[in-house]
Nucleic acid binder design. Structure first.
Lengths: 196, 196
DNA sequence: TTTTTTGTTGATTGACGGATCAATAAAAAA
DNA sequence: TTTTTTATTGATCCGTCAATCAACAAAAAA
């Protein structure tokens, strides 16, 4: 059956399988066999393409980040005013794809793993910085820089916090409620200001 | 060397060792031997007192929760007005003991593990509810109930979010900054209101 | 003193899982 | 056609670790 050009397909299938396996288990200790099985291949093949398990996990995280980046870019393009930019960033973080319990479980698991893996830690910092700067791209049009910075920090923290609470399946059930909470904060924080 | 009455001492030592081991590693996969070693006993003894590893982890989480409860009670007792109560709750969550990277790493790890262990999940829900109701004990004196509820939700989320960011060692370096962010939110949210 | 209870460990078992490797086969290149 | 490259797997090795157990020691009870 071996057809040439399988590599990219297999890599992608393995990454998808990794996401769903992690999402279902709620943690990173899924076996290579489990992942490979879901992707319809043997565990040996997973090792063949990714070397070690760490590499596969890292590649998976990169993939998730890349998708988020794409969504974010699209959302920001169709945002006009600074205020709209801020809301767009918030909305993307709570969009259907990002706010699913599975995806969130994966995020959480990666956060923990980042304590051990410096490569993963670096990746997550990239995400954190990007979220911050995306928020700033709107906020700096409304608040003076230092205040904008603090507002971005607070907003980011609130988003992360709502993610965690979602993972616990306690309180804050849906995306709409989550968005409302963040927007409420933004409204009272930015409401009075003119959009420069 | 065997002296009678060791059980409570050993249990406590093992729990302390568990916390520090988890804190250092940043995740729950520390071995029983590692924990037992830190406590100065053999792994067999850890099993003797706690049965399985799960039990030890659960007991450890219970211990952490219990300490937080004590701190919280003390802080709330010396708070007069509703507004002070809210600030007290915030302050406790960012107190030296609670806001150490080690403790936070442990929290995070337990959050992930909760996906697998229903007993742990139940415990964390208890914590979430308690935080919520502690916040409410102050907020209901300032805002109408439904608004207070939302404010408590937002505040709790922000606290959790700041915890995570601390674990990543990115942004929000110290407790003072974290408190300032939450207090800023509370101020603009509650500032205008009379304390009933 | 003898017996029982409490405390403790070294050694061992058994399972699981990451990683490796030799072997197979189709396709592409020579 | 022969050779090399690409795709793929079953079987296996090896390390780790939770859990168990038999055995020993000190104190308390009988």
């Amino acid at each position: 059956m071996p057809k040439v050009g399988m590599e990219p397909l297999r890599r992608r299938a393995l990454i998808d399988a990794t996401i769903s396996a992690i999402g279902e288990r709620g943690s990173l200790d899924v076996t290579m066999s489990e992942i490979a099985g879901r992707a319809g291949v043997s565990s040996a093949l997973a090792h063949h393409y990714f070397g070690a398990k760490d590499e596969l996990l890292l590649a998976t995280m990169r993939h998730i980040l890349a998708e988020l980046t794409i969504d974010m870019r699209r959302a920001l393009q169709s945002a006009g005013s600074p205020r709209e930019r801020v809301s767009a960033v918030v909305a993307v973080n709570f969009s259907d794809i990002q706010f699913q319990p599975e995806t969130i479980a994966a995020w959480l698991a990666f956060y923990v793993e980042a304590q051990k893996s410096s490569a993963l830690r670096r990746l997550l910092r990239v995400y954190a910085r990007r979220l911050h700067s995306n928020l700033m791209s709107g906020l700096t049009g409304i608040l003076p820089r230092s205040e904008a910075d603090r507002a971005a920090e607070a907003t980011a923290a609130m988003i992360d916090g709502l993610y965690i609470r979602r993972a616990l399946k306690d309180g804050v059930p849906d995306a709409a409620t989550a968005i409302a909470l963040v927007e409420d904060y933004l409204e009272i924080k930015l409401g009075g200001r003119q959009t420069q």
